[in-house]
Design a protein around this nucleic acid. Structure first.
Lengths: 222, 222
DNA sequence: GACCTACTGTTAATTCTTGAACAGGTTTGA
DNA sequence: TCAAACCTGTTCAAGAATTAACAGTAGGTC
């Protein structure tokens, strides 16, 4: 019991690296590599080996000292830790371009997030088939969430409706919300929310672009 | 000159918050608010006021001591810093669902990133109109980048082609690449790259979901 | 004018992250 | 059997980021 609790008390920075480790390891697995050392794995991810071992140390016991990691075991362990050892039923709310883009992204299913429902309020979209399943009316939301035991909702509705929909999802028993609407959602602490902001991404890129251009100008002046 | 250089020597963590500040400030501006204190602004963003002042301190001189910030001035200053005071010509490479979703996201243009070209290798997509402009063939890429002075490219092509396209973009003189392909791009240091990984987002969410579910189980057991 | 309140810019302290170091354990090969 | 080459788990130091504290200014009010 204590161990479970400890497993969750991990820095965010580490949690964000776990998927990267998993991805690389699956790649290695696919080409038949059996063992990998912390140095090899870290190098391919452009981080320090000590950091990787440090990260793994939060969970402990991925290898025995002296031996490199066993790729397959490590993949299994990471899937357990991330919580995708069992598929996590997922729904997409909002079947606009972004919702469709995500629904069509087949890797989602492979990575452990089968799409159990796609919803939209627009009657023109309801009924349209996306990757073999129909877009459903928002009315069916609670019913499907309950029946399919949906745990995670991917929210791609307009900002104006995002909080409203989120409240419905929370009431329906959703545990995690992946929000693409350009606004920060509020939810009780029993629901995990991740706000994905495209604007943040492109603006932080723009900042760096501006710096590069300035430096180029400076060097020209010399 | 020195000041410019200093302006770029800012922690990533701070840079990532600048767009959030800007967004909130624009909202305030839209409803006619003229002044805002660090405490008010920080509270609405769920961060500490001291952190906000600390962030602004890297650039300096947004207000004079004793007086709150002037919303309009602050918006202008942040736009300068982020590099969107002048529009930044942008292109989208890959007109699949994700590319179309981004192209249709009108806020991009408003926020300073006008789309000067949408490209795809698929002949079936070439010519299709998206928000008033045709999808172009990849052959035209270099020409358009040069003519329209495109600075940032949004990459939504399959992982297998991402690096190839990126190399072409770099050669063509692109300064920033916003990469949505599930792989880390390599580029020379004169080109800023931001790799956006959806898998990382949903998996880190899954980790938290798992922790919440475990804690709920634990409490039930008591 | 004097005082009180609200505010910023700046520095100092604290907390979090990262990176280095090292104490063993394992295998290989002479 | 012993040494050399690797390897991990763990601890410790260095470096960043966040938060708190404070000095000093501005404006309002009596």
């Amino acid at each position: 019991m204590r161990k479970n609790r400890r497993t969750c008390d991990v820095p965010d920075a580490t949690v964000l690296r776990l998927p990267l480790y998993l991805e690389k390891l699956k790649l290695l697995q696919a080409i038949g590599v059996e063992d990998v050392s912390s140095r090899q794995l870290a190098e391919s991810l452009d981080i320090k080996a000590s950091q990787l071992r440090h990260d793994f140390h939060y969970f402990g016991g991925f290898s025995r000292p002296g031996r490199p990691y066993h790729v397959q075991k490590l993949v299994g362990a990471l899937e357990q830790i991330i919580g995708i050892a069992e598929p996590v039923p997922t729904a997409i709310i909002g079947a606009g371009h972004l919702g469709q883009a995500i629904a069509n992204y087949q890797n989602l299913e492979i990575q452990g997030f089968p799409i159990k429902g796609i919803f939209d309020a627009n009657p023109k979209l309801v009924g349209v088939e996306i990757r073999g399943q129909p877009v459903r009316d928002m009315d069916e939301l609670e019913e499907v969430v309950l029946k399919e035991k949906v745990k995670i909702a991917i929210l791609t509705v307009p900002a104006a409706q995002a909080q409203l929909v989120a409240d419905r999802l929370v009431k329906a028993g959703i545990v995690g919300i992946f929000n693409f609407a350009p606004m920060d959602l509020k939810a009780p602490p029993t629901v995990a929310v991740r706000n994905e902001r495209m604007a943040v991404g492109i603006m932080s890129l723009s900042f760096k672009v501006k710096c590069i251009l300035q430096n180029m100008d400076l060097e020209e002046d010399i």
